[in-house]
Design a binder for these strands. Sequence first.
DNA 1: GTAACACATTGACCCAGATCAAGGCCTGTC
DNA 2: GACAGGCCTTGATCTGGGTCAATGTGTTAC
Lengths: 241, 241
Amino acid sequence: MAANDGASAREIREALKHQYFVDGMSDAQRSRLVRGMTIQPFAAGQTLFHRGDIADTFFLVLAGRVKLYRLSIDGDEKIMGLVGSGESFGEGVLFMSTPRYPVSAQALEKSRIVAINRTEYLAELQYSFQTCMSVMCKLTARIERLLDEVESLTLRDSRYRVVNYLLELIPEPADGPVRLSLPTSKSAIAGRLAIRAETFSRTLRQLAENGTIVLCGGRTIEVPNPKLLRHALRTKSAQAS
Amino acid sequence: MAANDGASAREIREALKHQYFVDGMSDAQRSRLVRGMTIQPFAAGQTLFHRGDIADTFFLVLAGRVKLYRLSIDGDEKIMGLVGSGESFGEGVLFMSTPRYPVSAQALEKSRIVAINRTEYLAELQYSFQTCMSVMCKLTARIERLLDEVESLTLRDSRYRVVNYLLELIPEPADGPVRLSLPTSKSAIAGRLAIRAETFSRTLRQLAENGTIVLCGGRTIEVPNPKLLRHALRTKSAQAS
DNA sequence: GTAACACATTGACCCAGATCAAGGCCTGTC
DNA sequence: GACAGGCCTTGATCTGGGTCAATGTGTTAC
């Protein structure tokens, strides 16, 4: 079904509102884009595309969660990204001469996702320098994040990565006690942090043992003192008092 | 000294010719850019900038070699990039709201480098959609390279990274014997590959022992059969016959 | 309620690559 | 040519995190 009639068009239009990749586009441009879009439902575990597939679309998640990953020869998986509602992925293929997805993508939960046609999008992009700037900003930000990731993989240990991840989940300069819930399964998070589920579990336990965090069971974790957690970034694995 | 008079202006103009970031710009635009540029000499070991410095320029290397790196708290170094003549770096800062270099940069050899003013460049950029496309292509390519790096840091072992690096040094689909020379010191390359100099040395020795490469002393390495080396990517560390 | 399954935890052991410690080998300087 | 100061190599040992295996703990299905 085409999405350009009825409720789904409105939903897409709404979701697009705050997307960097249409920032600065006119209403007319947005309308032309929406006309070609469809909302696709995905079941938990369903694959969107494989690394190396020819790519003529990129994606915007309306609801659910998607994992982006690469596999080693012997089936080992590294999660390159976890994408939730309101976020987009696969924009990289817009600017490749032979567009192929550089990662595989799989829905982790039941999800609703909009596919955006590469050619149609590029046709609109060329009329808006502001949008180009917005896109270049985003690409640059992604490069910075990847630099951070390379750094944390090479100069930091697994404990740092776990603590850093938890800190990213804390909303803002919150300094009081925070209760947070992991956005997805612990094994997926471990994959994202390039450690095994076992190591993730042990690291959380260790943090809990010296009082930096409190494990509340399930996906819920309490941080009594974010400052202490932030300090744990600078600390070596040896436990503080 | 300003570069826009005499030989250096001509040299800059020549070097710019094949740079992606002026691709599609008019002669007038290029001239305006060159007017503000200067060639800066750097001695071996001299620092260009530190991570976190406020950034109002990015750079083009005319001659020499620059290392881009990050440091851990205890002085450990990860080389994020090695940049040689004809290559540019630091473009990321163009699109940051508060532009700061995300890495530190140091000349490895005596170098001649052009600094390009961020504001002046951005002023020209907005008149050329083609240049924007070229820039976005480049940023995307950088993201892909970083994804590859993350993959090789997490899903591959040190041997893979060494072999892969050597393969990148081989000019083209050369299938005959190739003699290549490492572009910089072995310890710097090791840093780039996120391994210790000791491990790099041992890995090269191991490759030499099973005949995949021949160590000719110094920075020279011979690859009798590139195909064999390419095959070594797929092989586990156990040595082949 | 309970069966079944997926995820999570815990313990015991292992290994690639780091670390530490000598030497060896260039390259430039006087 | 001999001395000094960088690299680079080689060997011995250590260790963070992986692997394997067993056990716990939800959660969905009926």
